[in-house]
Design a protein around this nucleic acid. Sequence first.
RNA 1: GACCCUAUGGUCUAGCGGUUAGGACACCUCCCUUUCACGGAGGUAGCCCGGGUUCGAUUCCCGGUAGGGUCGCCA
Length: 448
Amino acid sequence: MSVRVRFAPSPTGYLHIGGARTALFNWLYARHTGGKFILRIEDTDAARNSHEAVKVILDGLRWLGLDWDEGPITADATGPSKGDCGPYFQSARKENYQRRVEALLSRGLAYEHEGAIKFKMTREPILIPDLVVGDVVRPLTDREELDPDWVLVRSDGQPVFHFVNVVDDLDMGITHVIRGEDHLSNTAKHIALFNAFGVRPPKYAHIPLILNKDGSKMSKRDTGASLATYLEEGYANEAVVNYLCLLGWSPKDNREMLPVKDVVELFDLPQILRHNARFDMDKLNWLNGEYLRAMAPDRFYEMSVHALARAGLNPDGHPLPYVKAALDTCRGKFKLFSELPAYGGFYFREEITCDPEAAQKCFTPENKPRVEKLRDAFGKLATFDAASLEAALKAVAAELGVKVGVLVHPVRLACTGSSSGPSLYHLMEVLGKDKVMQRIGSVLTVST
RNA sequence: GACCCUAUGGUCUAGCGGUUAGGACACCUCCCUUUCACGGAGGUAGCCCGGGUUCGAUUCCCGGUAGGGUCGCCA
């Protein structure tokens, strides 16, 4: 039987990083086995159902590159979809639930209670065979002993999650349920329901959860919990995917950076780790830096420009060759695009504000004449390129009998406003003679 | 309270009945260097605890502890 897996998020308005990984693992398994990856929107709760909230999910999955074989095409619950098992919004599947309730009712497996419909739950412990965790026996808890039956349909007519989830998986022919371990205990309910419908339950694979760095549960408000953060802050999507793959799964060959197509090839359920993983932003950032370094130039420019614009700078107001040359000097020097405005923003600003502390160290009465001398030397340069600038600076340093750093630091600060940045000689070449002379000049006139 | 899952450096992990317990991030030192980053060399740091089984347990079993999860007319 061909594999059919699904990702069934509830449109809450954001896509949790853990949910994103669940989607990824489902997708990886589908692609590994040649099966189908289905997207189903669990919008039973009307309060959580909004076009915008669904869009967040679709955008997130698309950004990660997790294409679905069946499911909605747009965020509109009544809009078009692909696949033969639709609708793919629970809000549009009411008849199915109704039909299933009646089937249980007519066979005495469910009953009405105070206006709600409850399921006659098995009293016996239930065996949950799990591809990740192994066989799990789940007896009733003490509270459940008091009343093992549970609500299928609320008194207001709304079916509950555990019920619709099972009915949809059944109607959609889902073969493997890959989901967060938080559902492991509840799986007993689901298996009992499948049994009541007289069908074999799907295979289960409960994957460990993603925790905060401190080991606490990662919830909505925690840093990095929302996938949208990475999208907005200009992470490379393949870095995020790569990092997520490494959380609870390993290629076992010490590779850290590996393309998703390799993961598709190697991925399988039994090798998923059984313990929760903590989210390590440092490692994600490192990986992002690696991908950023390997990124095709045009994409690098595009993402850089986006990051600069987001920080209020206007790179598009400069000639394209200038922008590209400027960005080339920044390439490989930072891990996150969000660092770029601080790193290379001086290329696109008219006014440079120097760090006061650094300025005090650099623009001393002793240094000023030296910098002035250097400026004069720069002024006489016929060609204002990195090699000439370097030669000129070194010549002046030699003449003054000082180390190059004595000149480099003040000039860097004057040109960029910062004590760290791209290669000084290259940066000055890109900036051009006018701006360099002007920026050096302006720090010389300011008293310190 | 009951039940379920889990346990290798700070973090992600590889591994195994006998290994100098491997890699990566982070951190520290040094080198390279105009700064930063990269790169190179080195370093600190780990098998949760207690019982078994065994000639021998990090590895297998049991217990404890700790962390996580579930027990809703939330999803």
